[in-house]
């Protein structure tokens, strides 16, 4: 193998001698300041009120071919099982250990089979609880971990994501301070997934087809008042 330390130092010193336009100390201060300031840049104008934000989120998610429903907290399990029935899918789901999913285990147990853990290749429908929704593009954000295993987002053909109404944010930039507060500055969970619609490909003659390698259907359930 190439001498890794040697090439590291050679690359860095080449960059330093070619790119740097200011003294080293000044550059170090600039970089430090830049990283800790978390400057937001330009945020596209968007609705301010929660109601309008949820409206925008829904409209954008539907434009990306997700389907969206709103339910009150007690109806969550029913909403999941009805969606399965509407699509002629088996009454069986896979979920993680997120405590917010416990209604599915309790009242859901009468309506469908509920398996826990990471995705199995045989799973047909995965259900996860989202960290948040992003109104500007109808995107949902998922965090890895045993609460909502990342493989549930990709392996099953159908993905239902549940999001609390109050977690619908306007811009991506609002998620980052939340993560810094929860995980610490400069720290992240192993995976953050932004998901906007079901998977798709246009690789055959530029014809857009839904359901490439990831889910064929993506359904979002917004929990009202939560």
């Amino acid at each position: 193998m190439a001498d890794e330390i040697g090439s590291r130092d050679a690359i860095l010193s080449r960059i330093r001698s070619q790119a740097a336009t200011k003294p080293q100390a000044e550059r170090m201060a600039d970089v430090e300041a830049r990283i800790s300031s978390h400057k937001r840049g330009i945020l596209p104008a968007g609705p301010r009120s929660l109601i309008k934000r949820v409206e925008r989120f829904t409209q954008k998610a539907e434009a990306a071919q997700s389907t969206v429903a709103q339910v009150s907290p007690p109806k969550l399990a029913k909403a999941v099982s009805e969606w399965l029935r509407e699509h002629n899918l088996p009454a069986e789901i896979r979920i993680g250990q997120d405590p917010r999913l416990s209604p599915l285990k309790k009242s859901g147990a009468k309506l469908m089979t509920v398996n826990s853990g990471k995705a199995d290749p045989a799973d047909i429908t995965g259900v996860s609880f989202a960290e948040c929704g992003i109104a500007e593009s109808g995107t949902i954000a998922m965090l890895s971990g045993k609460a909502n295993p990342t493989t549930l987002n990709f392996v099953p053909e159908n993905h239902i994501t549940i999001v609390n109404e109050s977690d619908i944010l306007s811009h991506y930039e609002e998620l980052w301070p939340r993560l810094r507060r929860r995980f610490g500055r400069g720290k992240m969970p192993r995976t953050v997934n932004f998901i906007t619609g079901p998977s798709r490909s246009a690789d055959i003659e530029q014809t857009l087809i839904l359901g490439a390698h990831g889910p064929v259907r993506h359904h979002i359930i917004i929990v009202k008042g939560a």
């Binding site: 995705a119 493989t151 995976t191």
Partner: peptide
């Protein structure tokens, strides 16, 4: 914000995935 719009005309690509290190001790996958 300018990437997907310039590439395919989407506002956002379907999957944007941020990966940091290997799986954590308590992660079931990764």
């Amino acid at each position: 914000r300018v990437l997907a719009r310039s590439a395919t005309g989407q506002e956002m690509s379907v999957y944007t995935t941020l990966s940091t290190g290997p799986r954590r001790a308590s992660d079931p996958d990764g």
